[in-house]
Design a protein around this nucleic acid. Structure first.
Lengths: 202, 202
DNA sequence: GCTAAAAACAACGATCTGTTGCTTTAATGA
DNA sequence: TCATTAAAGCAACAGATCGTTGTTTTTAGC
């Protein structure tokens, strides 16, 4: 797959074309965030992008390619974990950043795509790729923590899910705002639990 | 709001009418599970239900009322937590049951509705009501555990999110199957973490 | 079996879909 | 600066879907 989503590379990609493409992809993200992939309407994309609908149809004859390209373009909106040397702090900051990011259209679009991924291999691959980068960063950060003696050695493959899962749960249910205190509680319980269940004091 | 979703009660609700209603609601759940609320098409509902589309339009002029009624009808598909006297076992069983239930169209429809709830008060109320029953059951079970000395007293409002959040996370990302061992690990870490972070050995 | 509630049938104008032929704009490179 | 031409805009289309309405047929309830 060369170029942007399998088509021959544009031969005049600057100026207006770039503007049109960017506006279409931005509109696509917003509408997928609101209505999901199945609810996406080309005419509404064009209207919101301030572009003629033929521009959308001709550039992205396949709606899944449109959605995938839109998701990948904004992949950087997905927050990642940092490294201050203090695992607890990095995790807490990470959770707070995730909670905030869940308000962004980009991130909500990824959530919608995650639902749709069940029925579409193309979307599934894109979503997996998006999450893979974040997941790898968390794994690297955890490995560092083990090296530094902040965590006992062992299988920490569930750690990421154990700290971020509750954030998604609370925010998506939308029952209450997610506070920094919530993040601290989650991280403290999970880290203490991992240490307490380690085979021996390492 | 009397009757089913605000309309005057049907005066001939038996036999064929009941059959039509049930088939439409079942079809609605399946299609919402696949395409979300915004992607729901009345004609496809009618076709899948083996029913004329006018029956759908006349019974449910408002698509949100159709979706809400469909969700509430299958509310019992949402698994709840049991009480064997052993908190760890009850939680593990609960998590495994949740993971299994996430394959059901009914439950996936609720997940889709949860996304859409952001933009629709009607849907939001229905989803909140659906989850409220399950959440209350977990809170009761946790309160029992505290009474029995299985858990230290304190604020356990995040416990439900901390054990079920990771399940949703793993299953929805769909990277790998969710095993009973995963459930055990999650519950063990969370329970150990809660005990380890309790103010004193209670 | 009668009555009438409710489902099916049929047909509608309006909107959306996806495509095509043509015109206009403007990015690119000389 | 300006000629070339890629790419966007415009207009019109057949077909599908939407939501509604008038009528006919089925059948639940008495």
């Amino acid at each position: 797959m060369a170029g942007t989503a399998g088509r021959a590379p544009a031969r005049r990609p600057g100026g207006r074309t770039a503007r049109v493409r960017a506006q279409v992809l931005a509109a696509t993200v917003e509408l997928v965030a609101r209505d999901g992939i199945a609810g996406l309407r080309y005419e509404e994309v064009a209207e919101r992008a301030g572009v003629n609908k033929t521009s959308v149809y001709r550039n992205w004859p396949d709606r899944e390619e449109l959605v995938v390209e839109a998701l990948l373009r904004y992949i950087d909106d997905l927050v990642s974990i940092g490294d201050t040397g203090d695992l607890r702090r990095d995790l807490v900051d990470f959770l707070v950043a995730i909670a905030d990011s869940l308000a962004k259209p980009t991130v909500r679009a990824v959530e919608q795509a995650t639902q749709a991924a069940r029925d579409s291999p193309v979307v599934r691959r894109a979503v997996a790729r998006v999450f893979e980068e974040r997941g790898a960063a968390v794994r690297r950060r955890v490995a560092l923590a083990v090296e530094r003696g902040e965590l006992p050695p062992g299988d920490h493959s569930l750690l990421g899910a154990m700290v971020t899962g509750p954030v998604h749960f609370v925010v998506n249910r939308g029952l209450r705002p997610f506070s920094r205190a919530d993040a601290e509680r989650i991280v403290d319980v999970v880290l203490a639990g991992i240490r307490a269940t380690a085979p021996q004091r390492w």
